[in-house]
Nucleic acid binder design. Structure first.
Length: 293
DNA sequence: GTCCAGGAGTGAT
DNA sequence: ATCACTCATGGA
């Protein structure tokens, strides 16, 4: 078991793992359970520490710190993006929310599945992919690792459809093939600038503006990416319409230009706009969740 | 039963 | 380059 002393570092497991950026983590009582690089992690927040049980247990605290982005200077980042009352209110509501450094392929595959889908369905799909195609984890009878691109490239559209992918099955299959064949090297994109990494990702089938931005932000360390989904579009239109050039579309939800909102977010919130995006997104879904219960 | 979801591909203009 | 349309699925 690992014990990570958080000292004064702000961190919330519930906000970080429950805000919709990851899909395979779940909470069992006070313990969050997930799989990272073939290791089951069980994480509890007790007083000022994180208690981490890993299976197999050959991981160190640096591994966990990197995944949870405990190396980010959160107070400095939040001070930087906190440009107005709307975002500051989101920050105060979600104290300790951090982005996560996801595995690149799992993130890419997950967000291909995520397009035009809702969170609960995405979770189901990604979990079924793990159960059907992932390999067993030594010491854990239940959970599987997320299947590699190579493994998924050898599956079929029918098998993927059986996991609930619907019309996205060929997208995932062909993207897995492209990655497995080395057409695009996700690891090297971590060192590329945001624009280059995004352009490379968008060559893959099923990967457009939004999915590419999600992968850049959640897996490729591009904190200056600003994904725009329907919720971000709505919250920006509702709260920042004065910054947008077009006056139409305040109330209607007619197709909106991705470029316009994306460019606004990136210039307005600055080099850590990805964090701003996630606070706005999480804050909005939280409102919806409480409204419906 | 209707509506909607962390959108993207396609074809027409 | 930018519309308008379609796409499969299941939870609310």
């Amino acid at each position: 078991m690992l014990l990570l002393d958080l000292k004064c570092t702000p961190f919330s497991l519930d906000c970080t793992l429950g805000c919709g950026q990851v899909f395979r983590w779940h909470k069992d009582n006070d313990t969050w359970i997930g799989v990272v690089e073939g290791h089951v992690l069980r994480v509890r927040h007790i007083e000022n520490r994180l208690e981490v049980v890993a299976t197999p247990d050959d991981v160190d605290d640096v591994f966990v710190q990197r995944y949870l982005r405990l190396d980010d200077d959160l107070p400095r980042i939040l001070g930087d993006i906190g440009r107005d009352e709307v975002i500051r209110e989101a920050i105060q509501t979600l104290i300790g929310l951090r982005l996560v450094r996801q595995e690149a392929w799992e993130c890419l595959a997950s967000y291909i599945c995520a397009s035009f889908n809702n969170i609960s369905r995405i979770r189901g799909i990604v979990n079924r992919l793990g159960q059907r195609f992932g390999h067993d984890i030594r010491g854990d009878p239940v959970l599987q690792s997320f299947p590699s691109a190579s493994v998924l490239s050898k599956s079929t559209c029918q098998e993927l459809e059986a996991c609930g992918l619907g019309y996205r099955a060929p997208y995932l299959l062909d993207s897995a093939t492209a990655i497995a064949e080395g057409l695009i090297d996700l690891e090297s994109l971590k060192r590329a600038p945001y624009e280059d990494a995004k352009a490379e990702l968008m060559k893959l089938p099923g990967v457009g503006n939004k999915v590419a931005d999600c992968v850049c932000l959640f897996a490729l360390d591009k904190l200056d990416a600003f994904p725009v989904d329907v919720w971000i579009r709505r919250i920006i239109v509702a709260n920042y319409s004065a910054h947008l050039s077009t006056m139409e579309g305040f109330l209607s939800l007619k197709p909106w230009h991705y470029r316009q909102i994306n460019a606004f977010g990136r210039s307005y919130f600055g080099r850590y706009c990805g964090y701003a995006q996630q606070y706005l997104y999480a804050r909005y879904s939280k409102v919806l969740a409480t409204k419906r219960t």
